[in-house]
């Protein structure tokens, strides 16, 4: 029974991974791609690792997969935020139909 629950978690994770990468290919802008891909792929990979933990059980591999879940949840938003900040400071343009850019207004206020 717990193996079936683990396989269901792995299926959810696979769906999230695939649609995140589809957004990475399809969306028009760096920031849109970052928003789609980072959130979807983080949740999908954490779901796959949790399914691995449920199937393998309390062995060394299962506990290492729990450790890997904690590590990915802590580091993926940091990496995404740093990439977005670096791209905005390097002068990557927004999409032509974007209507608001709060970070540029904040930089205007600082200068």
């Amino acid at each position: 029974m717990i193996n079936i629950i683990g396989l269901i978690f792995i299926s959810i994770g696979l769906a999230f991974d695939f649609f995140g990468c589809l957004g990475l290919v399809r969306l028009p802008d760096v920031y849109c791609r970052l928003q789609a891909a980072t959130k979807c792929v983080t949740l999908g990979t954490c779901s796959i690792l949790f399914g691995t933990f449920l199937i393998v059980g309390f062995t060394a591999a299962g506990l290492k997969s729990l450790l890997c879940i904690i590590f990915i949840i802590l580091t993926a938003p940091v990496a995404a935020h740093t990439i977005a900040r670096g791209a905005h400071r390097a002068g990557v343009k927004l999409w032509k139909d974007s209507i608001v850019d709060k970070y540029a207004e904040d930089k205007e206020g600082e200068a």
Binding site: D17, L34, A37, V41, G44, A76
Partner: peptide
């Protein structure tokens, strides 16, 4: 850079 980051997370899965 975004694609490299995402590829790294997915290879963990």
């Amino acid at each position: 850079i975004v694609a490299v980051d995402i590829l790294g997370i997915m290879i963990v899965g």
